[in-house]
Write a protein that binds this DNA or RNA. Structure first.
Lengths: 248, 248
DNA sequence: TTTGAAAGTGTAAAAATGACACACAGACCA
DNA sequence: TGGTCTGTGTGTCATTTTTACACTTTCAAA
């Protein structure tokens, strides 16, 4: 057997990324539009992903995919799990598309999915770096995706839901300065249920991980809201001292 | 490229299983002893696992590994995640061992780990079916394992810990009839902390998923305990009606 | 019959949760 | 300039949940 070149692509393992963003109204997902050619409407969209290189680990591969697409680094990233149904590449359109780009639609590919949380303001469609074939789509409006990516998306949403009950990772989706209402809406979007305003605020206050910036929103046609930022130091302090309950 | 035989082994993807058992005292893990030849003490033990076949999905592969080893079917099984560090096969002893069984220690293998929960009584060392090179080892006594299996074991324990806070999967580890004390000890083993006896019992009672069998332990040198069984119907009923809180 | 060992049981204080309604500040418009 | 619109921000009470804590019971074995 020939000596392997360690930096070649592994034909059997890919990573896919569910990249979440929050537009202060609802949860969005960054998807790739593969274009109209021979592709039915419902599978034009796919999650960004790629085969891994033999010399990188899975998480590195996910970061690479993310960075190649968005130029963003230091992003919150977490593994969802592996998806490896032998029939996950069963849609005819997917097979055709694969053939067009790498000519091995018969290969068994298992994929390891990651979800990442991005401040949408850092990667908006009008930015020069925004990939031409990428788009933010509201998570609720996605009805189908290529391959098994719709399943992966649902798994990602569930994982995010569970995770945010335990850790305040939601702050990765918000701008540096945000209002309590925005935070509130974020939790409602992720948990997919209404939360009582006053009870929500009480709970957040008790967590004691927000700093009031003593600034107000400007230009809004109503009473301006106070702005807050996430206080990472305080959070670290709390968790290191064994604080446990960031649950919602 | 030659036509692929779908039932061949995929050289790049394996599954490994963390099989938990509970001896009514502590949590145990089923490990494979690879024997003394050229292997340092700390890496003689490994998790059961194998390469996947190209025509089976990941979960099927995990069930296959489990059944090949224990002859057990219909076991609780859940994915932990994928582990794919390029250096996960770095220990010299592991490379030597791999060479001895399949001669491709250079191949990049990512593994998808599962944990499963087994009633230990169904698979005890003295049974005819018990694999000669397998052994139940108390989870706390395992200090190292082959490859990255020690990391996988820790991930499995964490996953189990999180899961049991949400769902009463612990019953998969107990015999059909069990005492509240045994259940109590199980939760303490998994959560790795003491739980107040009375508070624990009160909580369990409120879950209302146990049936009192109105039988007592026999032959114990102290007040005999009442025996209970897990009431699956009641559990299904509760969960389907949106009951949510099986937390500990 | 005594001893040892685990089973089983209740209460009170503190904390967390859930339900609920109105005054306020600014923008905009007539 | 006064009125309207819109989202912001705030407190309380009843209920449930959590936590901490100690003694009596039952059986086997000595």
């Amino acid at each position: 057997m020939q000596k392997k070149n360690v930096s070649e692509l592994n034909p059997n393992v890919s990573v896919d990324c569910v990249i979440f963003g929050f537009d202060l109204e609802k949860l969005n997902v960054l998807v790739i539009d593969r274009g109209e050619n021979e592709l039915a409407e419902n599978v034009r969209l796919a999650l960004p992903g790629n085969l891994i290189y033999n010399n990188e680990n899975l998480e590195q591969a996910a970061y690479r995919v993310l960075e190649e697409l968005t130029s963003l680094k230091d992003i919150y990233l977490e593994q969802i799990g592996a998806f490896g149904d032998p029939n996950r590449i069963c849609k005819e359109a997917d097979r055709a598309w694969l053939k067009s780009i790498r000519a091995e639609p018969e290969a068994r590919v298992i994929t390891v999915a990651y979800f990442s949380l991005v401040k949408m303001e850092d990667y908006m469609p009008h930015a020069a770096s925004f990939a031409k074939n990428a788009a933010w789509i509201p998570a609720d409006e996605i009805k189908d995706l290529a391959f098994d990516h719709y399943d992966i998306l649902q798994a990602a949403r569930n994982k995010l839901k569970e995770k945010i009950k335990i850790q305040p990772i939601g702050f990765n989706l918000l701008p540096e300065k945000f209002t309590l209402s925005q935070l509130h809406k974020l939790y409602e979007s992720i948990l997919d249920k209404e939360l009582d305003k006053r009870n929500f605020r009480r709970k957040v206050q008790k967590l004691d991980i927000l700093t009031n910036l003593n600034e107000k929103q400007e230009g809004v046609p109503h009473k301006p809201s106070e702005l807050y930022k996430f206080n990472e130091e305080k959070y670290q302090e709390l968790t290191q001292n064994g604080y446990d309950n960031f649950g919602f």
